[in-house]
Design a binder for these strands. Structure first.
Lengths: 240, 240
DNA sequence: TTGAAAACTTGATTCAGATCAAGGTTCTTG
DNA sequence: CAAGAACCTTGATCTGAATCAAGTTTTCAA
């Protein structure tokens, strides 16, 4: 596991301070977290943790994108989670990872050894409460993804994926400007996340472009031309 | 919502006492839970909570089976969770349900008004710790289901579903006896859970019977004749 | 007890997306 | 900066499961 320890950033200057597992921690609590944290970076494509590995640490994603993946015995794979900045990696109270975690872009982690973190959890209600919220939010997200995997068509899947990226990266339309997005995954990884093939992903993205819904500036960047059309193309009811 | 209040059962005599959200509660804590609980029953087929409804209560399933479901705007449906005895329904801290919850067999719930339960959570670390465990276990289960929905074939889906039923109902093979199982869902609901059609579910079950893996005694009951063959038919790696 | 509805099975046909195939474009690195 | 490797696109064909169809069996209410 190729990784590199980088300079510590002060928690109060941290870009994910207000959204991560530490968001509800007060100054004293933050000080104890600061004690036990380490920053590491992982290059795009490198594994962070394999299925079956001992879970030595938990972490928040500070920057970059990682995938949580599953594999069947014959090699078919499914990405079961997309981890963006402020998301929490690892599971307190579990010895071994059930999933492969792979850096999809260059990733910076704010890492805690598992044992000290578990101690912190047991003694700091603010942090354990935040972790419940995070777990329940992820559970809702996983269940939303289940209807996508089970019942949506290829074009609905692509539209839902792109809408989700826009929503989760907190990208807003600023007076008339159309949102511009970077795809953090290759066509192949998008296919693994949506349960399609890379050919189908490619074709459906081309179709959305031809329909005038969006416009690719290069293979990994696009502008949304018609946000409402994209929303309608997801097949979803209005969100609650 | 047709429901019926039934006689209270004492917590210490409760069949799910050792597995539900109350499992780590001590005697004092159990006493406070006993204060605010109510038992209700729901007939097979009746809704317990619709998507968009205000969440007035949370509950443990004492007996029976309920489904958590999602619907797309054109009516396509996906069951995103199967709730068995000791499972927890509802989400503290959320105002409205994101899912339809429907009794699939007759169901008995041990119910708590949401607000008093949230108070209990905030003041009873044992219960909130247990709720984190439950949420994280459900998250793992949801992610396991994602690879089924995305990448498994129809026959692997059926084999996985039947294996899961055996595992979650804690049915053991007792000296040579083959496990006998009741299907708690109709073919149509199984199809909604596995993202298949009811016709495909029917055909694949017939195929497993013809292959000698299992044997139906009637439409809702079967014996497993070859547990190893069933396990192999799931397509999974060995579990960790 | 019986008639209708619900649940299930089996067969024929269709189709969305997979697979197979052949190139084109953009990175990477020596 | 050249060449190989990744990554992506587009086309032709195939296939697993959906859809359409026609029954049979079971359940349940009147």
């Amino acid at each position: 596991m190729n990784q590199q320890i980088v300079t510590r950033i002060k928690c109060k200057d941290c870009p994910i301070r207000h959204r991560a597992v530490c968001s509800t921690a007060d100054e004293t609590e933050l000080a104890s977290m600061e004690q036990i944290k380490t920053y590491t970076t992982h290059r795009a494509g490198e594994p962070i943790l394999w299925r079956g590995d001992e879970i030595k640490f938990v972490a928040s994603i500070v920057d970059g994108v990682a995938t949580l993946g599953q594999t069947l015995e014959d090699g078919r794979t499914q990405v079961v989670g997309l981890m963006l900045p402020s998301d929490f990696i690892g599971r307190p109270g579990r010895e071994k990872s059930k999933f492969d975690i792979v850096a999809s872009t260059d990733v910076t982690l704010c890492r805690f050894e598992r044992k000290p973190f578990e101690h912190l959890l047991a003694t700091t209600p603010h942090i354990s409460q935040r972790l419940v919220e995070i777990a329940l939010d992820e559970l809702d997200a996983a269940r939303d993804w289940m209807i996508l995997l089970g019942r949506k068509t290829a074009s609905e899947k692509i539209a839902t994926f792109l809408s989700m990226l826009i929503k989760r990266q907190h990208i807003e339309r600023i007076d008339g400007m159309q949102p511009r997005l970077a795809l953090p995954l290759t066509r192949e990884k998008i296919a693994d996340y949506l349960a399609l093939t890379l050919e189908t992903v490619s074709r459906q993205m081309t179709a959305l472009q031809r329909a005038g819904v969006l416009e690719f500036t290069d293979r990994r960047h696009f502008n949304v031309l018609d946000m409402d059309a994209l929303r309608r193309a997801t097949g979803d009811d209005e969100p609650l």
